[in-house]
Simulated scan of single mutants.
Amino acid sequence: MSAASPQLHGLPPGAFSCFVTGTDTEIGKTLVSAALLHILALRGVRVAAMKPIAAGAEWRDGAWHNDDADMLAASAHVQLPQAITTPYLFQTPAAPHIAAELEHTAIDPAHILHCFDQVRAQSDAVVVEGVGGFRVPLTHTFDTADLAQQIALPVVLVVGMRLGCISQALLTVEAIQARGLSLMGWVANVVDANMSHVDANIQALTQRIKAPMLGHIPRLTTPSAVQAARFIHHD
């Protein structure tokens, strides 16, 4: 594979499902997930969204809301109950295992998988967004990498473009491959508007990541699924 070839590929045609992970927290997983949902909906795919664990919720309009989960729900074609799309919604903005302990809740991986099966049964495609980076603890013995492995969908990696992203991205790719998962591709998302040498960093990543680069999202003034989708390669 040549150094430039990953840039020549786009998303798979038609309907596809994927698990979206990232190099860290707050690097654009939700934005990319929403963009993928928007693209699939434009293709006429009955696509559903799932964010199994969300931490940081507030009470609005008679219900608990998480901004990330709400953005995904708004971008999905198939609307399903939050009880199955986000089975674990915590008020505390903290790592899931910490939030769960503080709120006297035990995260049960089997319940997440049961909810995923329900979501998949009611749609033609599912975009599942992980929480934080690829190896965030969910319990004392189970993390998001374990969850991705059990869900067994192709993975889309969101690389937050900022200083240090090359090492973070390559380590995450190694972790994904170590779980026997397929890396569908990766998206460069600019999180630091003042980052120097963005193009050089992207070139270094395309030379080292043996999977398609699916897009390069600049720093958006008003981030939205529609805006982000413009920068992801698709038909």
Rank of each mutant, 00 (worst) to 15 (best):
G215E: 08
V198S: 01
I217T: 10
E26L: 02
S182T: 13
V47R: 02
Q79A: 11
D146G: 11
A83R: 03
V128P: 06
R46G: 09
H104V: 10
G10F: 05
A178W: 02
D192Q: 12
A228S: 14
T21C: 06
M1L: 07
I107W: 01
G132T: 00
V20C: 01
E58G: 05
G132H: 00
K51E: 05
I27S: 03
A63S: 12
Q207W: 00
I27Y: 08
A100P: 09
P93R: 10
T86G: 01
N189D: 04
A193Y: 03
G28H: 08
P6V: 05
I53N: 00
Q79T: 14
L220G: 04
T222N: 06
A178S: 12
H38Q: 10
A229P: 07
L31C: 08
P81T: 04
R179C: 08
R46H: 04
A225N: 08
K51V: 04
V136D: 03
L214T: 05
E174C: 03
S167F: 05
R135M: 14
P218G: 07
P96W: 04
S167Q: 11
A175S: 13
S123P: 02
P81L: 05
L8V: 10
T144M: 15
P212G: 10
S33D: 08
R120L: 06
Y88L: 10
E174L: 00
L220W: 06
Q177H: 11
I217N: 04
F90G: 05
